[in-house]
Amino acid sequence: MSTRSEALLARPAAQLEVRQRITVLLTPPGLWLLLFFVIPLGVMALFSFRAASFGAQRQVFTLEHYQRFLADTSAQRLLWRSLLIALETSLICVVLAFPLAYFLSFRAGPSRLMLLTILVIPSWTSFLLRILAWKVLLGSSGIFNSLLLSLGWIEEAAPILLFSRGAVIITLVYIWVPFVALPIFAGLERINRHLLEAAEDLGSRPWQIFLEVILPLSLPGVLAGFLSVFIPTVGEYVTPLLVGGVDGIMYGNLVQDQFARALNWPLGSVMSLVMMLVVLVLTFGLGRGVKVTDLAGV
């Protein structure tokens, strides 16, 4: 802090003024978080202890639904599966997005911003439309099946393409790659180019510059990209609904079922809370040693 602002802060009146300004600045996001995050979360936590969604049983508080979840191995297996799908999706996204971001940042030169825009443009169309597009592509008369058929590689349209775990992952990867490329790109852009010259000057060959300097310095961006896919994908339910079939069902579908079909809100709440807890623990485990400010640099 400059001495001038320190001197300013030393005056009680100015201190008050600064505090007031911070309050004013933080009020809208604070309210937003309170209204749409903290309160709903509280309501959900409350519901997880209710005996039933409606009626008199609603006023009875119990741990029954937690016990039910702990006993329900199929729900736990589905959660595990969803974590794996999310993990695979985010890893594939990172593997695909890294070279993309690397090219944009180090090789694309002045046209990088235009290329970046082109990369993001597809995300302007509706999320549902993009999933449905994959339904067409992967369907039994879709382009992949027709191609394989006409090449004579397969005898009949392979149903495996659509309504499978693979279809869910392909679709999710397609949707998320640009959003992983962005934080990685931002991370690579922040690398001081003099560092690369310094490394070369000290005798590093190009691959050594990559391994010793670029890769370690890009990790915060990679982690940010990874988490920005992993976190929302664990709870994903639209994509599996549309392209997943029986095989590609995810934990999110189970949760949705409890709320929308079984109308068992307490159990749905328990499931949601458990998933949040698991994701939270995993995220903090991964994020240890990486500063929040690095992630915020996205």
């Binding site: 003099h194 560092l195 010259e197 070369e200 000057d201 005798g203 300097v213 370690p216 310095l217």
Partner: peptide, 20 residues
């Protein structure tokens, strides 16, 4: 001769120390 094989070393104005 590429930079990494030249018998010279450089001190940069912004030092360019590896932050990691």
């Amino acid at each position: 001769v590429p930079a990494y094989r030249r018998p010279v070393n450089m001190v940069f104005q912004d030092y360019a120390l590896f932050p990691h």
